[in-house]
Design a protein around this nucleic acid. Structure first.
Lengths: 251, 251
DNA sequence: TTTTATTGTCTCAATATGAGACAATGATAC
DNA sequence: GTATCATTGTCTCATATTGAGACAATAAAA
C-alpha cells in the first residue's frame, strides 16, 4: 500500500517517469463468439479510453506495459505485441486531459506534466477472458469489456489505435499463436474457428479450416467434450508448446 | 545557415526537442544486385551507427524522421515504415555517447541531455540508390552505403535494429510496394527478382517469379531495354500507381 | 428406435506453385 | 549473311494447396 501511494505521488508530479512517452494497450479477449477489448471510463466525464501508462526511469518499456496491464487485469504473464507508435503533434490536446483531471477534483497548473505532449507507443495484448480480474485506475469508474464491433466514442486518437491493433492482429494471425492466447488451455475446433472469424470479420468454411489447422501439426488432440447437447461431441485441442514461437525480441 | 546554426544550438542543450525520445532509420538501397544500408562513422572513434535524430516540440514524429533522412540523403518524399520501438533500459549507455562527444571535442557535463536515457523508434526507409546525395552530420566523418551482408560492428543495439528492419521488410515484401521504391521508375524483371532475392536472402526460380509478378496485375510493361549485350533484350516495367497502396496511416 | 444438430473425414474440382522445355531474340564472331 | 551464345518470354506437366460439398458417425432428446 505504501508502494501504491508512492506511485500515485509520482504520477502527480511526473517525477520518476520518462517524459513525453506514454503507452496504450488494446487488450483483446474472446467471449460469446465475439472479440472484445478493455476500455476505461473516466469519472464524471462519459469519456472512454484505452488503458495506458508511463515508463519509469529505471524500467524497460515492455516491462512498463506489462506492469500497467497487470494492474488492470491481474495477469502476470501476458502476451504482448507492439503495433504502432502514434506521434503526431495533433494528438496533443491538453484540454481533454484537463477535463478528466478536473472531473476528478485535480486542479493542476497549466504546465503540469500530464498536460504536456506525449508520444504513445501502442501495444496489443491477448488474454484469456476468464482469467482477468478487472480493476479501474484512480481516474476511472470502470474498466470493462466492449465488443469490438460496438465501441463507444473514444478520446483523442484511441479509435485509430484500436483500428491499427486490429489490423496488426489480423496480419499476425497466421504467424503467431493467437488462438492459444485468447482461449483457455483446451478448446474445441469450433471455438478456434470462431476466434479466427471474429478477428478476420468474415465467415470461414468449417471443413477447410479444420483441415488446415490439423495440417499445421501444432495442435494436440485431447478427449471429447460432452456438452450435454444432442449431437456428436467435439474433440478438445491444445497448442503444442513452441511450435509457432511466441514473440521474444530484444527491446 | 542561420537556421542550421540554431538547430545545432538546440542539439547542444536539448532545448526544443522532446526528451527521452530518439529515432533511428535503416535506409535500404539496392545496387550491384545486393541490398545496402546507410551507416554513419563518427569522427575519430571507428564507431558506426544508424542515422537518427530527435523530435522537435512542434513536429510530427514521422515528419521528424523525414527531416532527418532528408538531411542525410537529400530526398524529400521518402518511403518510410515503422518497424519497432527499442525501449530496454539496458540500451542506456552514457559512456558510448560520451566517447563520441569527446572525440568530437565536446566536453559535456554528466547531466547533459544527450547522456540521458532514450527510447528509440526504429524506421526503415526505401530509396532509389541513384537518387541519394549522402551528407554526414556534425559528429560524423562519413555517411555511406554498406552491404547488408558485410556490416561493421555497430554501437549499442543498432545491429539488433538492423535485424528487426530486415525482418519487417521481409514480412512486408508481398503486401507493400517494395521493389517500386528501391528501383528506378522503370526496371527489368531480372532487377526486380534480384531485389526480392537480396531481401529474402535466397534464390528464386526465374520462371515462377515472372509468372507470379505478371499475374498480380500491378506491373505495366514498357519498351525493351537494349543493353548492347549479345542476347534477347528484356522488357522494362513500372508499377501501376496505387495498386498495392503505399502506407499512409495516422500517427 | 427415431430424430436432430453437430462433427470428423473423404472426395472431386479448381487454383496455385515447382521444375523444366523450348522457341525467340540481340549482338558478336566468322 | 550465317553460326554462336547468353539471355528472355511463354508453355507444359507434375505436384501441392484450397474451395465446396457429400456422407457417415455420434450424443442426447423425443
Amino acid at each position: 500500500m505504501a508502494k501504491k501511494l508512492r506511485q500515485d505521488a509520482s504520477v502527480v508530479d511526473g517525477y520518476g517517469y520518462l517524459t513525453n512517452i506514454a503507452f496504450d494497450s488494446v487488450v483483446f479477449g474472446f467471449s460469446g463468439a465475439s472479440l472484445k477489448i478493455l476500455l476505461m471510463e473516466y469519472h464524471n466525464t462519459g469519456l472512454f479510453a484505452l488503458p495506458g501508462g508511463f515508463v519509469k526511469l529505471n524500467e524497460d518499456l515492455n516491462a512498463a506495459v506489462k506492469r500497467g496491464l497487470k494492474e488492470r487485469t491481474g495477469i502476470d504473464t501476458i502476451y504482448l505485441e507492439q503495433c504502432y507508435v502514434f506521434g503526431d503533434k495533433a494528438r496533443h490536446q491538453p484540454a481533454v486531459m484537463n477535463t478528466i483531471l478536473k472531473a476528478n477534483g485535480w486542479a493542476v497548473p497549466k504546465e503540469h506534466w500530464l498536460l504536456d505532449r506525449f508520444i504513445s507507443i501502442a501495444y496489443y495484448a491477448l488474454v484469456n477472458y476468464n482469467d482477468v480480474t478487472l480493476v479501474p485506475d484512480a481516474l476511472s469508474d470502470s474498466c470493462t469489456w466492449y465488443d469490438i464491433t460496438k465501441l463507444p466514442p473514444l478520446i483523442l486518437d484511441h479509435r485509430l489505435i484500436v483500428a491499427k491493433a486490429q489490423q496488426t492482429l489480423q496480419a499476425n494471425l497466421d504467424s503467431k499463436i493467437v488462438g492459444g492466447n485468447l482461449l483457455p488451455k483446451q478448446f474445441t475446433m469450433k471455438e478456434l474457428q470462431q476466434v479466427y472469424e471474429a478477428i478476420l470479420g468474415e465467415n470461414i468454411r468449417r471443413t477447410t479450416f479444420q483441415r488446415k489447422m490439423l495440417g499445421l501439426g501444432i495442435l494436440k488432440r485431447h478427449q471429447k467434450k460432452y456438452s450435454g447437447k444432442a449431437h456428436k461431441a467435439p474433440y478438445m485441442y491444445s497448442f503444442k508448446k513452441n511450435k509457432t514461437a511466441f514473440s521474444k525480441q530484444g527491446g
